[in-house]
Design a protein around this nucleic acid. Sequence first.
RNA 1: GCCGGGAUGGCGGAAUGGUAUACGCGGUAGUCUCAAAAACUACUGGCUAUAAUGGCUGUGUGGGUUCGAGUCCCUCUCCCGGCACCA
Length: 866
Amino acid sequence: MTLDKKQFFDPQAITAKWQERWRLDRLYHIDLKTAKSPYFCLMMFPYPSAEGLHIGNIYMQTGTDAFARFKQMQGNDVFEPMGLDAFGIHSENYALKIGKHPMEQGRLAQENFYRQMESAGLMVDWSKKLETTDPNYYKWTQWLFIQMFKHGLAVRKKAKVNFCPSCKTVLADEQVIDGKCERCSSLVEKRDLEQWFFKITDYAKRLLDNIPGLDWDEKIKISQTNWIGESKGAEIEFRIKNVELRIKVFTTRPDTLYGATFLVVAPEHVLIDKILKQVQDDNVRKEVNEYVKSAQNKSEQERLEVGKEKTGVFSGCYAVHPMTGKQIPIWIADYVLASYGTGAIMAVPAHDERDFEFATKYNLPIKQVIKTPANSEGKAYAGKGEIINSVEWNGLVVPQDINKIIYDIEKRNIGHAKENYHLRDWLISRQRYWGPPIPMVFCEKCAKEGKSWFDTEEAKELSKIQNSKLKIKNSTPEAHGWYPVGDEELPVLLPFIEDFKPLGSGISPLANHPEFYNTKCPVCGNQAKRETDVSDTFLDSSWYFLRYLATDWQYLPFPTENREFSTEVTKLKSEIAARKRFLPVTIYIGGAEHAVLHLLYARFITMALHDMGYLDFEEPFSKFYAHGLIIKDGAKMSKSKGNVILPDPLIKKFGIDTVRLYLRFLGPFEQGGDFRDTGIEGMHRFVKRLYKLLAKDQNTKLQEQKLEDKKRLRMLHQTIKGVTEDLEALRFNTAIAKLMTYYNFLSTQQDIYKIEAKVYLQMIAPFAPHVAEELWEQIGEQYSIHKSAWPSYEEKYLVSEKVNIAVQINGKVRDVLAVASEESQDKHRVMEIVLASEKVKRYLGKTEISINKVIYVPGRVINFIV
RNA sequence: GCCGGGAUGGCGGAAUGGUAUACGCGGUAGUCUCAAAAACUACUGGCUAUAAUGGCUGUGUGGGUUCGAGUCCCUCUCCCGGCACCA
């Protein structure tokens, strides 16, 4: 007779039973204050834009959860919080697509997301959840913006910025991938606009220098290093002939200075106008003007097109070479970028491919200054070799002697050592609706009078107490008229408006709402206007991990002892101290796609908050682990391909424990893997078999007495060791493989010892929390398995199963003769095995040698000295 | 072009320099069934052999180090990711 499945294993009933019990018992509630061994296990919070959770979200969340549960069982007080990154273009675009108001869509999505995440059986303390759209949250996002402004890290600048014509907003550099919008893949345009920027470039060096010390995925560290893009070199000044003007150029190869045969400046370079005034020839002037104009009209895309032939025009002016005193022509060409370095270069065609191409086209002189191997032709871009044709530098060898050259340049007062960074300032304004309004007020009257917040008493007070790393600047023209909203006015609520659609033309939807933007100047009291742009969603997520520790605090953004909050700090003194122990985040798990976005911004903001005195650490995430992507049929899941896997039906069909186990098993966590339907069926079979093996009313008898069988003890302890090490390194797939091997072993045994069942359930609990809890109860153990101590192993049971037996002649290993197995641990037995081995017989027969000494190397090789 | 990472059965993937292919999927055969499904049992890299506890071969290519290489070193090919007219 076949058993009805329901009769012996009903995953839905088990899940419901235990989730209910855990909730009633507040099993996963964590008291941040009394925690003895604080462990902050953070996972990236999702944005609730799509129809619901994606299998990829579940993949990441349950993976993090398995690790968190493991750490909890190891005796840590694990804080695993969760929330929603609900503001931002992602969510807004989705609302636009389905024709709902973002506020309404947000409410629906929020409900659905929390329901789904709770069904995943996470050990999240839901009493500490947060949403970035909550005014109690974005009040502090706005507060953060204001602190950045007050400390001179949020500035208004007019600049060429990325503009997405489809999302109708500006974008940060990091949000442009291959010239396309990160969200919608539209071709990004460049527009000249005045916007709010965060001065992340001020932190470029520190952000870079801290990278080697981070316990992060190497991939991510390399990406960030490349993105910050430090180039070491020198800035060198060239006098312009007949004029009191100088052009600064940046070069990484000051050693090739004697090879500079002309200068090139970007078409946008500010000196061009001044230079042109000196030019007599009208034709040249006209030509230059035309070139500059045509360069401006070209899109970034066109200008950067690979393989494009270089263009340029002679400016009519000459510069004076600082070493030789000879005059060299100044050219204007768009292969030099205004936004990098000084916007001008010294061209060394003999040793730079681009300069060579340009010099060849326009017939400019080429002068070799580095000795190159005989066989290479004119263009040798060698970065190393002996310097020639360079008067006093001749004979020096680069790169070794580059510092001598820079020293010489500095001594002659023609330039100095200089580092440049690829990193650009973080453009924070968005001309969209769905975000926290930037909490700034602009007063026309004050602007005309050249006043700003930096002229107030408060600014002067602040400048007295601030960290030396942050110098409050004097009021710059860009800051004139700008005041932050007063603390008591926060949050600046995002109003509900019907016309929330992005307008394009660089204006935010809020700009059509005088009832929102009309206000009074906090200083002069005249009519003033609120900023109508909202901030980038990456600002919301740049500090959310701090807020998890303070979701119940209304007057503190996160645990801090800064004097700004002195009243609260006095009141909550010990609580703040206790909660601070969870920071910085112990481990952060998330997708590698945020390498240069979220992860860099969070580091920057943390560093800035540190410098402002709000935090006493400057790196937010001690450890970062990047998980891989889950794909289907070898391709990324997408609706157009019709290969999207949704979690709900799977959970319904197999139960969450099977899904959790399968997601862990399908490939290494850091690589992701291919979702296969037959694969999950296989895992389902395993879960059913396991249940059958250990469930109370099944045939198995649990042996209460002590386990003495050596083989079984070794199996048990080896599995504990392997699984523990695998979990420690987040190698979930191999951990589960070991558990399955162990199951296969146990299932062949007549009886199962209690200790085996117990340890087995504990090891599978992080992956299959509900089934493990159910069986834990059925074998008569005390609730809850998740509060039980992770099993430990004893070395004495771990003697290696395999040893190799080798022959040594004159201290050198000559040959491996045999492989002995477990029984061979004592020397006499080894001898027997060796002598019985066919290979040894042959070896001994051939060479007529005898074994006179045995050296035993535990675990690996047994050497015979012959 | 530059910087990373990778290539192991029919498939996903295991292997601190020590019996390559753990674990799962798929496949084959069998048990149970009127039958099928499910479940269970056995086998499953290739070639060869079958009296075997047999032989040979095998981790993208070609070489090297080593008693011993998927693993370490060098060459080449291909694939994936990031950056890219950044001076």
